[in-house]
Design a protein around this nucleic acid. Structure first.
Lengths: 219, 219
DNA sequence: ATTTTTTGTTACAACTTAGTTACTATTTGT
DNA sequence: ACAAATAGTAACTAAGTTGTAACAAAAAAT
C-alpha cells in the first residue's frame, strides 16, 4: 500500500515516513506542489496524506485538481484546530482530516478506516454536489433523490470511476450487456440520454460530454 | 457484575473505579495491554470498558483479539468527539462507545443499556414507529400488534438489516429456502405481498419498494 | 457547401419482471 | 379429528424497463 505524503516540514514528513513504514505501508514524500499532480499520476498511490498548507499553493487547490481526475483517498493534515479547515477539507472532497499535532495511533486508525471505506465498494460516493448511493440505487442532492435504473447506474458508476477520462462506447456496451449478444448500438445512446435527463433533474448539466468517434467523458 | 477497566491514565481509571463501585458493580483495573487477554480470560468480566488508545497497542487490535474467543460486551472510550473513532469502534465489534470527557450518568446508562441488550440478545428491534419482536414473531405499534409468519419475518428482518440497500430476490430466496430445492419465484413475490399487507396494517406504506430487475429495498 | 457519419431524441411496444387473487395442500394447534 | 393458520402454485393482471425505429441534430469528411 503506497501512501504519498505531501508535506514541506521535513521533520514532520520524516516522522510520518517512519511511522507509516513501521506500520507496513510504503511511504513516499513530496515536498511541494510543483510536481505533485504529475507525481501522483506516476506513482499512483493508494492514499494521499496532505498538509493543507504547503508551499506555492494550498491543499484545497491541489485537492481540487486531484479530484478532477482521480478518486485516490486523501487525508488532510490541518494545522489548526479550527472548524474552517475541517469544513474546507471535507467539502473539497477529502476523505478525512487530522489536526496537528496528531496522535500516531489515531493517524494509523484513520488511515485504516479510510481503506476500509474504500474496500467496501462503497455504498456512497460523491459527485459534484450529489450523493451517489450505489446500494440504494439513487443519486441525490439536498433537494431531491432520483432513482436510477440498473442500466443507468451501470453507466454512471462506470463513468464516475473513470472521471475525467474518455470511456469508449464499447467499454460501456460490454459493461452493460457483456460480450455475447448483439445489441443495437443505439440502445446505449438512449440509455445515455436517459441518464443525462436524470442528472439534469439534479441540476447537473453538460458534465457528461460526448467525444465523437471516441466515447463519453464525465467531467 | 464485574467490569474490567482497561485504561492507562491513572486518574481516569480511579475515577471510573469509584464511579462503578458506588453504582454497585465490581470494577477491576488493567493499566496496559500486555496481560489483557489473559486477565480477561481469568477474571471473566461481565463487561469491558476500554480506552481506544492504550499503551503498546490500540483498542482496535485488542478488541479484535477479544472477539475471536469471546462475546464479552465492550464499551470503548474514545478520546475525541470524532466519527472515525466511533466508526472504528463499532465496526470492530464494540457494543457502544463513549467520548471523553464523559458524563458519569451517561456512562452508567450506557453500561446498563449494554447489559439489557445482552440479556435479551437483540430480539427486539425498532423500525419507524414499530417494535419488531423477532422471537415473539410480531411487529407492533402503540395501537396494534401483528403476527408475522416465519417467512414474513425472515424477509422483513433481512430487509431491515439491510435498510436502505437493495436486496436481490435471490438473496431473499436463499434466506428463505436455502440453496437446494427449486421454488417457484412467485412464492417470494407472494410473501412480499403478504408482508406489505401486514406492514400496511400498521400504517407503514410505500416503505418496501420494488426496484425492478434489481430487488427490493426497505427505506 | 454538401454529404456522410455519428450521436441525440422521442414515442412506442415488447418483454420481462413483479403483483394479485384464489385455490389447495400441508402443517399446527386444540 | 377438526379448525385454523401457513405456504406454495397457478392464472391472470399490472407495471416498469429496455430496445427499437424513425427522425433530428451535430460533427466530420469530402
Amino acid at each position: 500500500m503506497k501512501i504519498l505524503i505531501i508535506e514541506d516540514d521535513k521533520n514532520l514528513s520524516s516522522e510520518l515516513f517512519n511511522l507509516l513504514l513501521s506500520a507496513g505501508y510504503t511511504p513516499l514524500i513530496l515536498q511541494d506542489y510543483s510536481k505533485a499532480l504529475e507525481e501522483i499520476k506516476n506513482t499512483n498511490p493508494d492514499l494521499i496524506l496532505m498538509d493543507i498548507n504547503i508551499p506555492y499553493t494550498n491543499g484545497e487547490i491541489l485537492l481540487n485538481e486531484i479530484r478532477k481526475t482521480m478518486n485516490t483517498p486523501v487525508i488532510m493534515l490541518t494545522s489548526r484546530n479550527n472548524e474552517t479547515d475541517e469544513v474546507i477539507s471535507m467539502s473539497y472532497g477529502a476523505d478525512d482530516y487530522i489536526t496537528k499535532p496528531y496522535n500516531p495511533t489515531i493517524l494509523l486508525l484513520r488511515i485504516n478506516a479510510v481503506f476500509k471505506r474504500m474496500e467496501n465498494p462503497s455504498n456512497i460516493t460523491k459527485y459534484e454536489n450529489m450523493i451517489v448511493n450505489i446500494k440504494k440505487g439513487t443519486i441525490s442532492n439536498k433537494q431531491k433523490e432520483i432513482i436510477l435504473t440498473k442500466n443507468e447506474m451501470i453507466i454512471f458508476t462506470h463513468l464516475l470511476s473513470h472521471k475525467g477520462q474518455i470511456v469508449t462506447r464499447d467499454e460501456l456496451i460490454t459493461d452493460l450487456w457483456g460480450l455475447g449478444e448483439y445489441i443495437n448500438d443505439n440502445a446505449l445512446t438512449v440509455n445515455i440520454s436517459r441518464l443525462r435527463t436524470k442528472l439534469s433533474d439534479l441540476g447537473i448539466n453538460n458534465k457528461l460530454e460526448t467525444r465523437k468517434g471516441q466515447g463519453y467523458i464525465l467531467l
